[in-house]
């Protein structure tokens, strides 16, 4: 068997194990939360009999292990359960939200990842000169300002003063693709500003590291232009660290954007999760947790696999 197949299979198996461990953590975590689900559903005025009945109905009296196993079994069969608060199927509610979140995240990613890498290359090309310093200053500033502040500032200037885009990012299924794009333009801008600095700086650092190599000198002595030395000879050898930080940022775009969703009233996963945490709706919290964990682990697994594939020694063994 090609060693690379083995390595990739190992990553897949490890990620599965990790996801299983995460599911246990999520389940245990929601169990040790203070408070009682039945109490919070029925309110302060509930009688002890009502509470006991509801607990039995929800299966809360069974041992934790068997509840975990039946939950896991359901999740593996695609059944995320029903929300305690409104009795709706969680899968359906999440499906709609997840689609929105992924749409927003991928739009932000499509803009920010190439932009960050290009800016990183540019910063290396003009290292320690004004373009490099300006790129660093702007991206560091944007990462240092809280994202809601950037959101409101952009909203004020672009939506209110200039009137280019709508200030709230309401989307629904009736909208065409371009209407949707128009609606989410502002949050995409904010998210891009937030994730740009990290990826750009890692690209810069990784490529500068590679630029010390002897083969870069060889490329320079071939008379290549500085930019093609960087793009053709340095970048392919810097892919691994860059991909890792890109994937971390993509994961952030999916699981960490609750503030932006609130600011722009965007119907995504983050808002949904926060709503239900405050209502102590454990099945929803668990479902969101397992999906976020899967996204995080999945993207990092992709980063690992890309790193493996980017290594010529592994791809072409002796």
């Amino acid at each position: 068997m090609h060693p690379i197949v083995k390595l990739v299979a190992q990553r897949l198996a490890l990620s599965t194990l990790l996801l299983l461990a995460a599911s246990i953590l999520i389940f245990v975590g929601t169990q040790i939360l203070p408070g009682d689900v039945a109490q919070s559903i029925l309110g302060q005025s509930a009688t002890p009999e009502n509470l006991a009945n509801l607990r039995a109905e929800l299966g809360l009296n069974e041992p934790a292990v068997s509840r975990y196993l039946s939950w896991l079994n359901d999740v593996l069969h695609g059944d995320l359960g029903t929300a305690l608060t409104n009795g709706r199927d969680i899968g359906e509610s999440i499906g709609y939200r997840l689609k929105n979140t992924l749409f927003l995240a991928s739009c932000a990613a499509v803009i920010s990842v190439p932009l960050a890498i290009f800016l990183g290359l540019l910063a290396v090309r003009y290292k320690d000169r004004w373009p490099d310093k300006m790129i660093s200053a702007v991206t560091l500033t944007s990462i240092s300002i809280p994202e809601f502040l950037i959101g409101y500032v952009l909203m004020y200037f672009i939506a209110v003063k200039l009137g280019w885009f709508s200030s709230v990012a309401l989307v629904n299924d009736g909208m065409s693709f371009f209407e949707k794009l128009n609606a989410i333009a502002l949050p995409v801008m904010v998210l891009t500003l937030v994730v740009l600095a990290h990826m750009m700086r890692m690209t810069r650092a990784a490529i500068l590291n590679v630029m010390q190599s002897a083969y870069i000198e060889t490329a320079e002595l071939k008379g290549l232009s500085t930019f093609s030395v960087i793009a053709r000879h340095a970048f392919p050898n810097a892919i691994s660290p860059i991909v890792n930080v890109v994937m971390l940022n993509l994961a952030y775009l999916v699981v960490g954007v609750v503030v932006i969703e609130v600011v722009f009233v965007y119907p995504g996963m983050g808002q949904y999760l926060v709503d239900h945490v405050s209502k102590r709706d454990v099945p929803v919290v668990q479902a969101c947790g397992i999906i976020f964990a899967a996204v995080y682990i999945g993207l990092n697994m992709v980063a690992d696999i890309v790193s493996i594939l980017a290594n010529p020694r592994l791809r072409h063994p002796k």
Partner: peptide
């Protein structure tokens, strides 16, 4: 001039070849 009129052979070819590219691509690049 570099890579056209004057070319260079370094002490350590192992370090002077880009590990991510096939040899032929690098030999004919200049």
């Amino acid at each position: 001039l570099r890579g056209g009129e004057v070319t260079y052979v370094s002490q350590s070819a192992a370090a002077s070849f880009n590990p991510a590219k096939q040899i032929m691509e690098q030999v004919i690049e200049a």
